[in-house]
Amino acid sequence: MSTTALSKPLRRLPFQWRHLLYLPLILMSIFYLIPLYLMLTTGLKGFEEINLQTMWDLPKSIRFDNFIAAFQTLAPYMWNSFSMVIPAAIISSFLGSINGFVLAKWKFRGADLIFPLILFGMFIPYQSILIPLVEFMKTINMYGGLPGLVLAHVIYGIPITTLTFRNYYASLPKELVEASRMDGAGLLGTYWYILLPLSWPSFVVVLIWQFTSAWNDFLFAVVLTNPQAWPITVALNNMAGSQIIAWNIQMAGSFLAAVPTLLVYIFLGRYFLRGLMAGSLKG
């Protein structure tokens, strides 16, 4: 079904018009790329070249020492980020998939009430629950390290992952599940052999979504982890420190911190869009 959704449509406007469309598209592309341009060029400049009045200028020479310096500072924290984000994304995706399956295709009494209650959790302002969160994590002995941070991302990811999978599964025909039941397959069998193989568009969407939101998170990370377990966002924030900020190193570090999520979008962006178009995040 995803292939039909992505199939290229017919030409929709007369030929000579169509090429004019490149003008606004390219202008918008420039707008989207401006922050990236500034991050990269500033990261390549020497400290004495940094000046707000010359921010648009290209660097006088290409030098990578800022990137090396930033990488040396950030590398251990980047590893922390990876070892937190990957389990968090995968575990919450599977939880969402199972919830979505049960709530869409294997409903029990009350399932229709459970779903909106779970969904509502997406909208909670996280700043207001930091204190009970830290207290609770401390009680269950999950405070300070990466496992606790993984747990927080998994749990606060449940609403969005459940929503994505439930809507996707709801769009699949009923007959799929009924046929499988006729064949005598149970709940797990139906999930494992029928639905799971069809789920990859949603998995890609949810994995990417969770990966980026956990990677970019600062709030949970700064209150739930101790210095040994800090992910990269906290370390990056600390680089800015005080007094004179070495903007070139800071920008190089910012860029490095964004590289993993950028790579995910560059290489998996197609699948993400395909998943979105296949109805994953729609109404």
Binding site: G145, P147, Q228
Partner: peptide, 13 residues
């Protein structure tokens, strides 16, 4: 993910 989460429990990083 399992390999990584296994590694991380005693994070001496």
């Amino acid at each position: 993910s399992f390999v990584l989460s296994g590694c991380t429990t005693p994070t001496p990083v």
